[in-house]
Amino acid sequence: MIRLKFLVIAFILCCTTVAAQAQGEQKNWYFGKGAGITFTGDSAKAITNGRLFTEEGSASISDKNGNLLLYTNGITVWNRNHKVMPNGNGLLGGNSSTQSALILQKPGSDNIFYIFTTDIQAQSDGLRYSIVDMTKDNGNGDLVFKNTFMIAPATEKLTAVRHSNRRDWWVIAHRWNSNAYMAFLVSDKGVAIEPILSNAGTVHGGPNRKAIGYLKPSPDGTRLAAALWNDNSNFELLKFDRSTGKVSDPILFKGFSEAYGIAFSPDGSKLYGTTNNKNNGKGQIVQFDLRAGNPAAILKSGTVVATSGSPTLGALQLGPDGRIYVARRDNLHLGVIYNPNAKGKTVKYKDNGFKLAGRKSDLGLPNFAQDVK
């Protein structure tokens, strides 16, 4: 009996360690107008040592122990010492691209990282990737290849999900003037040239500004959600197959003004989106209950759970502390959803939930891949 008790304790400690290591890569955030956050356990602290200033997208990555490695706005790359990396200028992301950058560690490598970038509003630079070698510049990193072309035109949507083999990645984007989601396999052999194409959901096209809006995976990687920004815009929810890279079974949530940010709750039961109410000029957060039942029931569950004092809300990003942080344009605070697994207004939203130590939020928060152990 004693032996069994020790085995149970060891198992719990092992799981806790795995969870802590999985969160280490997302410990340090840089975004907005020189703003930043560092997470330790359940606490979050504002930091002001970043050099990044951007209107929308950014990406950062730390090692499994939470030590900062690099961060970028999709144009410039800074190292752990907040210095521009050698060859670290001139990436072809955009200062005003929703998900301008995403950083992935190459499978099977301790030192090679990919930076994927998206151009502004479906322009000609499209989706590209660059390569960082962390053994260069005395271990601080150097861009050894830049702006390798993948596909164009593409929307500003960019995310990644761990493959079902728990080793490789799927980098997921969306073709412009098309209903095709594109999943590129990233393995120890590199980045696949040809994507897996899935014609699913609505056509992302029309006026170029409709390329705006986030794409996010659920915590278990089996669902995707996208915000299709426009005056009269939509959210869409789809299934994702981590083995094949295929996207399917779309559900469309219609009739939201300026749908932009999107995030799943930690347990995957709720979907959140930011939108702006034309009648009162305030940003709002809408929640959908993904366990409500069939697609019609999920649609019917849509509820405004928070209204901001800000006219414009941007990104939603789940933190390592289990809270969802809300970007408020040109504001000294982030909004915070404290209990995102809860239903309706019991989520406990605070508009001035996180003070940025004198720095300001804009529309974006860091873009992270969804690891699934």
Results as ranks from 00 to 15, higher is better:
Asn279Leu: 08
Gly206Lys: 01
Arg175Ile: 01
His204Asn: 12
Tyr71Ile: 01
Ala20Val: 07
His82Asn: 05
Leu91Trp: 08
Ala357Thr: 05
Arg128Phe: 06
Tyr349Thr: 07
Ala225Ile: 06
Lys27Arg: 02
Gly314Met: 14
Ile75Met: 12
Ile298Gln: 04
Ile262His: 03
Asp231Val: 12
Ala180Asn: 14
Glu25Tyr: 08
Ile120Val: 15
Val186Asn: 08
Ser308His: 03
Lys33Thr: 12
Gly268Tyr: 00
Ser187Tyr: 08
Leu185Trp: 10
Asp188Arg: 10
Asp119Glu: 15
Asn339Lys: 12
Phe39Cys: 08
Ala292Leu: 11
Phe256Glu: 07
Gly141Met: 00
Val336Met: 03
Ser310His: 05
Leu185Tyr: 07
Pro340Thr: 07
Val18Ile: 07
Ile262Pro: 02
Leu7Lys: 01
Leu215Lys: 01
Asn138Leu: 15
Leu158Val: 09
Ala200Met: 10
Arg359Leu: 04
Arg323Ile: 10
Pro320Ala: 13
Asp289Gly: 11
Ala263Lys: 00
Asp42Ala: 13
Ile131Met: 13
Pro295Lys: 01
Arg242Asp: 01
Val84His: 05
Gly273Ala: 12
Leu238Gly: 13
Lys45Trp: 03
Lys282Tyr: 04
Gln99Ser: 07
Asn279Pro: 05
Phe39Thr: 01
Glu258Val: 14
Asn339Phe: 13
Lys106Asp: 03
Gly245Phe: 04
Leu143Glu: 06
Tyr214Pro: 11
Leu127Glu: 10
Arg167Gln: 13
Leu69Tyr: 00
Val132Cys: 11
Ile251Lys: 09
Ile285Cys: 06
Gly283Pro: 04
Phe256Asp: 07
Val305Lys: 08
Leu365Trp: 04
Phe116Ala: 12
Arg3Tyr: 10
Gly66His: 09
Ser248Glu: 05
Arg323Tyr: 05
Thr40His: 08
Ser62Asp: 00
His174Gln: 14
Asn138His: 13
Ala263Phe: 12
Ser301Val: 02
Gly139Trp: 06
Lys254Val: 14
Trp29Leu: 11
Thr98Asn: 10
Tyr272Cys: 02
Gln284Asp: 14
Leu252Val: 15
Met150Lys: 02
Ala59Thr: 00
Arg166Ala: 09
Val336His: 01
Ala226Lys: 01
Asn230Gln: 09
Ile196Val: 15
Pro207Trp: 09
Asn352Tyr: 15
Phe6Pro: 06
Asp168Glu: 13
Asn367Trp: 02
Asn73Thr: 04
Leu143His: 05
Tyr181Lys: 04
Leu237Thr: 04
Gln287Arg: 13
Arg359Trp: 09
Glu258Ile: 14
His204Phe: 14
Ile212Ser: 08
Leu91Cys: 09
Lys210Phe: 10
Gln284Cys: 05
Ile285Lys: 06
Asp125Pro: 01
Gly206Trp: 03
Gly206His: 02
Tyr181Ile: 03
Ala101Met: 06
Val77Leu: 12
Glu236Phe: 03
Pro207Asn: 09
Leu143Trp: 08
Gly90His: 10
Phe235Glu: 01
Ile75Gln: 15
Leu52Gln: 06
Ile2Cys: 08
Asn232Thr: 13
Thr222Phe: 15
Ile9Leu: 13
Glu194Ala: 09
Val305Ser: 03
Thr135Met: 04
Cys15Arg: 07
Glu194Lys: 11
Val247Met: 11
Gly36Val: 11
Ser164Trp: 09
Lys246Asp: 11
Pro217Ile: 08
Leu158Tyr: 00
Pro195Val: 02
Asp267Met: 07
